[in-house]
Amino acid sequence: MQIALVTPYYKEDLAEIRQGHESVLAQDMPCRHIIVADGFAKPEIDAWDCEHIVLPNAHEDKGDFARGMGALHAVHAGAEFVAFLDADNWVEPNHMSSLICTALKNGTAITTCRRALRRLDGSMLDPLDNESDGLRFADTGTILFHKSVIDIIALWAMMPRNVGTIGDQIVWAAVQARGYPISHTSLPTLNYRTKFRSHYIARREIPPAGTTDIAHVESGAQAWNALNEHQRRCMLIGYGRGVAA
């Protein structure tokens, strides 16, 4: 059984990308790491134990197209399961094995874990974030996809650029709308380095320098609402169902 973990990157710090890559190499079961440069390739990555795919131009969509292309490459090359890891995050050694075992035990095409929130310096902010619970919402990095849900996997590469900041919400809504079976490990095996001020404020901490508000997320939501009903329907339940409006 072949499994792959896909990391898109743009201009993130090389040290953070390396931390994520090393966490993939440290997995307690074999896992291919596919790293996709979204227009700003770092030549150092060519020497790493990974598959380094370089896209010629940045797509300005928060890595969605790069994420989708990396995942489609993984499936085409034989991966049965695909997961994702943002360039500034990292995973625990049992991340993939716990997801795979849960998926196989329950026969699910979609399997989720939980995430721990990390401060920008990597220290622990919250060991079990309640926002990404695998029910109301699942962060991209917490989801394992079986190749049978290729329609969901491909959605990353098919969304309009201006909704990129809410791509994870659109994908999760599509998972729910299409009724795929879901199971959960309940383990916080994703370490999510949060830049959102709201995460710090909610935990009674002063947000550090480098954090941001949710204006870009709100912009993506506005772009989503500006789409017509057919466009939204295509992304949620699938393309090719009716004539475009």
Rank of each mutant, 00 (worst) to 15 (best):
M29L: 15
M29T: 12
C31E: 07
C31I: 12
C31D: 09
R32G: 05
R32C: 06
H33E: 12
I34W: 02
V36R: 00
V36T: 04
V36E: 02
A37I: 02
D38G: 02
G39I: 01
G39T: 04
D46N: 13
A47S: 15
W48H: 08
D49I: 08
D49L: 09
C50N: 14
H52Q: 13
V54Y: 00
L55A: 06
L55H: 04
P56S: 12
H59N: 13
E60Q: 11
E60R: 08
E60H: 12
D61A: 10
K62H: 14
G63A: 10
D64C: 10
D64Y: 03
F65G: 00
F65R: 00
R67A: 08
G68C: 05
G68D: 04
G68A: 09
A71K: 01
L72A: 10
H73V: 05
A74D: 04
V75W: 00
G78L: 13
A79G: 06
A79M: 06
F81E: 02
A83G: 08
F84P: 00
F84L: 13
L85D: 01
A87T: 07
A87G: 11
D88R: 04
N89E: 14
V91D: 01
E92S: 14
E92K: 07
P93S: 14
P93C: 11
S97Q: 12
S97C: 11
S97V: 15
S97Y: 05
S98H: 04
S98V: 08
S98Q: 07
I100R: 00
C101F: 08
C101H: 08
T102E: 15
T102V: 07
A103Q: 04
A103V: 05
L104K: 07
L104R: 07
L104P: 00
K105H: 14
K105M: 10
N106R: 14
N106L: 08
G107F: 05
G107I: 06
A109F: 02
A109Q: 07
I110F: 05
R114D: 11
R114G: 04
R114V: 05
R114A: 10
R114M: 11
R115E: 11
A116P: 01
A116G: 11
A116H: 05
L117H: 02
R119N: 15
R119V: 08
L120I: 15
D121F: 07
D121M: 08
G122R: 09
S123I: 10
M124G: 07
M124P: 04
L125P: 01
D126A: 06
D126L: 03
P127K: 08
P127R: 09
L128R: 12
L128P: 03
L128S: 11
N130T: 13
N130E: 13
E131V: 09
E131G: 07
S132I: 02
S132D: 09
D133T: 06
D133G: 05
G134M: 03
G134P: 00
G134K: 00
L135V: 15
L135I: 15
L135K: 13
L135R: 12
R136Y: 13
F137Y: 15
A138N: 04
A138S: 15
D139G: 14
T140A: 15
F145P: 01
H146T: 10
H146V: 06
H146A: 15
